[in-house]
Design a protein around this nucleic acid. Structure first.
Length: 824
DNA sequence: TAGATCCTAATTTTT
DNA sequence: TTAGGATCTA
């Protein structure tokens, strides 16, 4: 059949093998840039061409974006009609379908709603309060994290309490009653008819485990299961997959047509419970599995691939694979050295400008990646200074806005009146005379009645809890307003109800009446949200219309024939959405701009020119967690991800000093910079000794002299040298190398190369960069007097001066940025 | 009940 | 530094 060969055509032989081997377990190890998505989509298309029933194919991804993209690509190959019938979506959205079907069995209403993470944290917080625990000890976010981890590992509250290990850990952390919070939190969620993200996986497991007949029924609906980014699955997801495929205990007659695609080298979500073991052990878990390796990188130059390989080779326990590039050798990686984060940013920006000119590149070809979001500040500043357009990806900024969350809380409450978190959020927004006292009393009442806050309002006997009549009237007025909308959730279109909530709650009006700029912005945001509901309704209707036109022999679908798109549908869509590309606007906005984002969010993307900023110890690799071997390996994989985003060039920058949390911090260049084989780096770090010698040049009497550090510490007084202060603070005692502090026998660890910058001289008037010549005596705004030894570089803007300073020794400064004046 | 002020904590985050 | 939350005060 010509069509079949068309799908395989244009694939390399490994890809073809991976696509065409349809039966039995298949592991596709897909290196970065190896055409993973193409293989996955081709495989599904091929499956359908071979007569597979699209309705019996389950394809799971982690993001909605990935699912949508793949669906589109498959549709292009096999046609809309078939593509639509695929069970393709995120783990969460697909599982929610089953959970709604069987919700009753699990003790949830089938209309359960979803708590996002912030709902979840505040619900946990409420539980902590209810148990009279100290939220300084039981930090809501940490407790929520722990609960989340427990759920991801299928540890229910009962199992939690029964697990000696876990309980011991809590005891050591001085949080022995954490399990009580967990239990209470679960009770409350259930009572509110709410599942958090982790519940979706946990409850899916409970459904499959506790109801074998449902398990068989669900598993029986599918002939093939495909999973994307398998390296990032957690335990709960792993077990679900096991239950849905052939399994001696629970599903001996099932199929084992499971195909997982992933790259162990790109597993970067262990901190959230992802288990890299899942992919490492796939062969063991699914006997008879076939493994295909996609090792040919179509994205990056040879230098980039080789550099990345040399880095990742430092990790142990990998699936052996030899990634290689076939394109150009390309430029070597570049290191950018800076004194401060602002200089780092400026250097990056000028390099971008230079590259744009040299290579006729566009803004959108550039990405600046970093480990932590807070690093974006300095970069933004530099970009603004040079008037370069940029776009920052940072979570869902829009849905994180307080006013948007408020409006969303109205939606949520209307869809599920028992959602206490939403209730609390908006009951007095705008002010309705329902204050803290009233709410405390109502909460006590609800607790004692065993109902939600909403129901408690209509309960008899509220006086006993100290609720005055006036307060109850206020509450009832609020609830009546919500209830009126709630009654119509299933019958009225989402956009109509959304608008009605905005009006009747007076939330929109309250923002509009605030004439400040912020107030107007808030009103505009709420309007935008309402608008997006309308757009969603319209889109969904069109989708359904097309579906109807495609599926049946229908020639025409009138508006009346279309089902109503309701608010709960909108809500579910939104709550399972993260990095929202909200509308076409947003897309336009992204066009031709420099991209700034964390390395995490860059996964799956590619850019011609990539900059990775902040390549310093304690930052990348991060020093925030206890840096055990496993964590270090994850950081290394993260860096691997960063490098492999690049098609043409990689620039890695680091600063000697950086302002972090309001303090100057000095950190040595990242160890990762040394781990890349030096042959792939144009200007590699010199050996450590040389770095240190160079930088240490004339001694400078400690920090005291700088005047902005109170604690003077003699250089080398601790094994961590001059910046020991900062280091010892951040480094947990348990991972401190055991070394006697002042033992002269211990090899003195040379002072780390970086140290805080001396303060700038006030009102310094620098001479212009073209004035400087070798041999001149100059004064620098920070380093004081010095002599220029040499200047080199093609143009003034690029030239660097080697200068020996009286106090600080030899330094190489970029003339463009060095603020200096000529003496004599 | 709202606004002002004080205090504290501070990765990464596909759902 | 700075943002967010909690607490204090009018």
């Amino acid at each position: 059949m010509a069509n079949i060969s068309a799908i395989l055509e244009g694939l390399n032989s490994e890809q073809q093998d991976a696509v065409s081997c349809l039966d039995g377990p298949v592991l596709i190890v897909a290196g970065a840039g190896s055409g993973k998505t193409r293989v996955l989509t081709s495989r599904i298309a091929y499956l359908l061409e071979k007569g597979g029933d699209p309705g019996r194919v389950m394809a799971l991804t982690f993001t909605k974006k990935a699912a949508t993209e793949m669906k589109e690509r498959i549709a292009a190959m096999v046609g809309e009609r078939k593509a639509r019938r695929l069970y393709m979506g995120t783990f969460h959205s697909i599982f929610i379908r089953f959970l709604r079907e069987y919700a009753q069995d699990l003790g949830y209403p089938s209309s359960f709603t979803i708590y996002d993470q912030s709902d979840s944290v505040s619900a946990v917080k409420a539980c902590i309060k209810e148990l009279n625990l100290d939220d300084k000890v039981y930090k809501p976010k940490e407790v929520q994290g722990r609960i989340s981890m427990a759920k991801n590992n299928l540890v229910t509250p009962d199992a939690y309490r029964a697990n000696a290990d876990v309980m011991m850990k809590d005891l050591h952390a001085k949080r022995p009653r954490l399990h009580e919070i967990y239990a209470l939190y679960c009770t409350k969620c259930k009572q509110a008819g709410v599942m958090d993200f982790d519940d979706i996986l946990l409850n899916m497991n409970i459904l499959l485990a506790r109801f074998p007949q449902h398990c068989l029924e669900i598993a029986g609906r599918f002939d093939h299961i495909l999973v994307d980014e398998y390296q990032d699955t957690n335990y709960a997801q792993y077990i679900i997959l096991r239950r849905l495929t052939r399994n001696e205990k629970t599903n001996p007659k099932g199929h084992d047509n499971i195909c997982v695609v992933g790259d162990d080298s790109q597993s970067i979500y262990a901190f959230r419970g992802a288990k890299i073991e899942n992919i490492l052990n796939f062969k063991r878990d699914y006997p008879g599995c076939k493994v295909f390796r996609l090792e040919r990188n179509y994205r990056s130059t040879q230098n980039i691939v080789n550099a990345a390989n040399s880095l990742i080779a430092k990790n142990e326990g990998r699936i052996p694979k030899k990634c290689y590039a076939v394109g150009e050798e390309g430029e070597k990686l570049h290191l950018i050295r800076a004194y401060t984060e602002s200089e780092e940013a400026l250097l990056i920006v000028s390099k971008i400008i230079a590259r744009m000119q040299e290579e006729r590149a566009q803004y959108q070809d550039f990405a600046i990646l970093y480990r932590t979001n807070s690093q974006s500040r300095a970069l933004e500043e530099a970009l603004r200074k040079r008037n370069l357009p940029y776009r920052i990806y940072s979570g869902n900024a829009f849905f994180d806005r307080a006013e948007v969350k408020d409006m969303m809380a109205y939606f949520k409450l209307a869809v599920n009146v028992n959602d206490d978190e939403s209730f609390k959020r908006i009951v007095n927004k705008p002010a309705r005379g329902i204050g803290g006292t009233t709410m405390t009393a109502l909460e006590a009442a609800a607790r004692s009645f065993g109902t939600s806050l909403f129901k408690a309002v209509y309960h008899d006997g509220l006086e006993a809890f100290g609720l005055k009549n006036a307060a109850v009237e206020h509450l009832k007025a609020f609830c009546t307003m919500i209830d009126a909308v709630a009654q119509r959730v299933k019958s009225d279109p989402a956009d109509v109800l959304a608008r009605r909530l905005a009006d009747q709650s007076a939330l929109l009006a309250s923002f509009k009446s605030d004439t400040s700029i912020e107030g107007q912005a808030r009103a505009a945001n709420v309007e935008e949200l309402l608008n997006s509901v309308a757009v969603f309704v319209e889109d969904r209707r069109e989708e359904i219309r097309e579906e109807m036109l495609a599926d049946e022999n229908v020639t025409e679908v009138s508006d009346e024939d279309l089902p109503v798109v309701t608010l709960d549908v909108f809500l579910e869509d939104i709550s399972l959405l993260s990095n929202v590309d909200l509308s076409e606007d947003e897309e336009k906005d992204a066009s031709n701009k420099i991209t700034l984002m964390t390395v995490h969010s860059a996964k799956g993307l590619e850019f011609p020119y990539v900059f990775v900023a902040g390549m310093e110890e304690n930052l990348f690799p991060s020093g925030g967690m206890m840096l055990g071997p496993a964590e270090l390996e994850e950081e290394r994989r993260l860096f691997y991800v960063a490098i492999t985003r690049a098609k043409k060039t990689v620039d890695l920058s680091y600063a000697q000093t950086r302002m972090r949390n309001g303090k100057h911090e000095s950190n040595a260049p990242s160890r990762f910079l040394r781990e890349i084989d030096a042959q792939y780096v144009a200007n590699p770090l010199r050996r450590r000794e040389e770095e240190d010698e160079d930088d240490d040049a004339p001694a400078f009497g400690g920090f005291g002299g700088y005047g902005y550090r109170t604690k003077a510490k003699p250089v080398g007084s601790s094994p961590w040298g001059a910046s020991g202060e900062a280091r010892t603070e951040r480094r947990p005692a348990s991972v401190m190398p055991v070394r006697p502090t002042a033992a002269p026998s211990a090899r003195p660890m040379a002072a780390p190369s970086a140290r805080p910058l001396p303060p700038k001289e006030e009102n310094f008037v620098p001479d212009s960069p073209d004035k400087f010549r070798a041999g001149q005596t100059i004064t620098h705004d920070r380093f004081g007097r010095g002599k220029i030894l040499e200047i080199n570089g093609a143009t003034v803007l690029e030239s660097k001066a080697r200068i020996v300073f009286e106090k600080y020794g030899e330094k190489i400064l970029l003339l463009k940025y060095a603020k200096m004046r000529i003496e004599d």
